[in-house]
Simulated scan of single mutants.
Amino acid sequence: METIRLEFNSNIKSKILELLSSFSSDELKIVTEHSTFEAEKKMVQARIDKIKNGTAKYSTFDELEVLLEDTISKYED
């Protein structure tokens, strides 16, 4: 299956849903988008911008391992 994102005026929602309801569940599945989509999109774009302009901070595998071990130990109990 493929996924597309639609933006529409709220006054046509019932018409869109009526049209979509004519398809079977094998043909079409309506997926509700998370309300945090726009915030996540901005966060990802900010990270991409940091990578492109050279201001991103990178970690070595050893630093990552220490961070992960610390995080895991906090939640082990």
Rank of each mutant, 00 (worst) to 15 (best):
M1W: 10
M1Y: 09
E2W: 05
E2R: 12
E2S: 12
T3D: 04
T3G: 04
T3Y: 07
I4P: 00
I4Y: 05
I4W: 01
I4M: 11
R5F: 06
R5N: 06
L6Q: 01
L6H: 01
L6T: 00
L6W: 01
F8P: 00
N9Y: 05
N9K: 14
N9H: 09
S10R: 06
S10M: 10
S10T: 04
S10Y: 06
S10F: 03
S10A: 11
S10C: 03
N11R: 11
I12M: 00
I12Q: 00
I12R: 00
I12Y: 00
K13C: 03
K13D: 05
K13T: 04
K13R: 08
K13Q: 11
S14G: 00
S14D: 09
S14L: 02
I16G: 02
I16L: 08
L17D: 03
L17F: 05
E18I: 11
L19M: 12
L19E: 04
L19Q: 14
L20V: 14
L20S: 09
S21A: 09
S21F: 14
S22Y: 13
S22Q: 13
S22M: 15
F23N: 03
F23C: 05
F23S: 03
F23L: 07
S24Q: 02
S25K: 13
S25W: 12
S25M: 08
S25V: 11
D26K: 11
D26V: 15
E27D: 15
E27I: 13
E27N: 15
E27S: 04
K29I: 00
K29V: 00
I30N: 08
I30K: 02
V31C: 10
V31G: 04
V31Q: 09
T32C: 08
T32L: 15
E33Q: 14
E33C: 13
H34C: 04
H34P: 03
H34I: 05
H34D: 06
H34F: 02
H34S: 08
H34N: 02
S35R: 08
S35T: 07
S35E: 12
T36N: 11
F37K: 02
E38M: 12
E38V: 15
A39C: 07
A39D: 13
E40N: 03
K41R: 08
K41V: 09
K42T: 06
M43W: 11
M43C: 14
M43I: 15
M43L: 12
V44Y: 07
V44N: 05
V44R: 13
V44E: 14
A46V: 01
A46S: 07
R47P: 06
I48T: 06
I48G: 00
I48Q: 04
K50P: 02
K50V: 04
I51F: 07
I51R: 10
K52I: 10
K52Y: 14
N53W: 05
N53R: 05
N53Y: 03
T55K: 01
T55E: 02
T55V: 08
T55G: 01
A56E: 01
A56F: 00
K57G: 09
S59H: 10
S59W: 03
T60I: 12
F61C: 03
F61P: 07
F61G: 13
D62T: 04
E63G: 08
L64S: 08
E65K: 11
V66G: 08
L67A: 12
L67I: 15
L67V: 06
D70Q: 09
D70I: 01
D70E: 10
